[in-house]
Design a binder for these strands. Sequence first.
DNA 1: TCGGTTAGATAGTTGGACTATCCATCCGTT
DNA 2: AACGGATGGATAGTCCAACTATCTAACCGA
Lengths: 211, 211
Amino acid sequence: MKISELSDRSGLTVQTIKFYLREGLLPKGTATAATRADYDDRHLKRLRLIRALREVGDLPIAAITRIVAALDDEKIGLHELLGTAQHALGPHVPPNADGAAWRAAKQDVDSLIAELGWRVGPHAPARDLLAQTFLALRALGFPIVLTELRPYIDAAETISAHEAGRLSDDVPRERALLGMLVTTVLYEQVLIALHRLAHEDASARRFGDAP
Amino acid sequence: MKISELSDRSGLTVQTIKFYLREGLLPKGTATAATRADYDDRHLKRLRLIRALREVGDLPIAAITRIVAALDDEKIGLHELLGTAQHALGPHVPPNADGAAWRAAKQDVDSLIAELGWRVGPHAPARDLLAQTFLALRALGFPIVLTELRPYIDAAETISAHEAGRLSDDVPRERALLGMLVTTVLYEQVLIALHRLAHEDASARRFGDAP
DNA sequence: TCGGTTAGATAGTTGGACTATCCATCCGTT
DNA sequence: AACGGATGGATAGTCCAACTATCTAACCGA
């Protein structure tokens, strides 16, 4: 298909698609002439993936670049591919290089994970995210206590167990990655949205007037 | 306290604090001379709040401006204040003005909320976030089915119920807002981080090698 | 009195993500 | 065959958010 068709069907402008081509997010089409190239369904799918990660997941182009580069590199095994992608998802917590308080928060996170018996890589970015949040909570005068965290931990475990049940290891590489990205990037947004809605409902019932 | 002290204690540069003063995020200190002003503990607390919302919640300055403006406006009642803040939290989904598909997704969200019996304002931004995510999921070939959503809905309800139980209506205005922001902005990050960690643990158990 | 600090104003920087132009083809239609 | 509109590839420019830097004229404390 032509680039204009790709543009129409993906909802991105031709200019944006060209930009993604330059950045290596989208592989080139097969050239049919000096000023002509042919794109296929894989390009369209790729663009839809990029769009979802950008617009819903709010991932920076650089992170998406890393993910698709790993995807396109056939030498990378499935396990490593998923690991790379997960790492690229970030979050990209700026290492504030805060001293003692930061180290204490990191330590809290490590103990928590150990206590829960979770098997998590030592450099998982989510560790930093959690530590950063603990730090902020403390700075605002909200100490972190385990009983406070309990419902969140339970929710995370329940949801992950459910998600893991849906994983299967005999799907094509691309599909496996897509499934992982969808559960961690898109369904996380679903969870956030539902949380906010449920929160509004709960406050309405708590303080609100009659239905 | 002096601005340099404020800078040291908040971890923000003097320049950044001046910038926040210009933007109206931080009220001016009490002037003691033409080139001198005095800041107090409220300024420090405000800066910590701004920092948490920016760095952890990733809120744009404009959203924070709206929130603190409402907070500082004594004419605004508590209920309205919380509503304004919640609305300012976004998310700031660009209205793609997509036609039929967008309207269908919105409709799905509306039916879901109605079905659940949740009391949610008709313009709650979380509605748009959910619709946008549904749209992206569909585009990627992941149809939305209620059984898929069930665990997320349950988690959202459980967590919100827990959070609502901690709300109380006889705390000072500022504390009430802070509590709301903390649960929706910071604890949401906690939830995401825990989810990613639990997810990694679950995949490790599913595919991984022995502990 | 003198080096270091500050309020207030204005201007400049950085990073990320596009967006606009150009040119030399090239395609499909007339 | 001719021509108007689309393309590939390259380069340059735009836009926005969030700072960051500089300058001036006071001011403070040793």
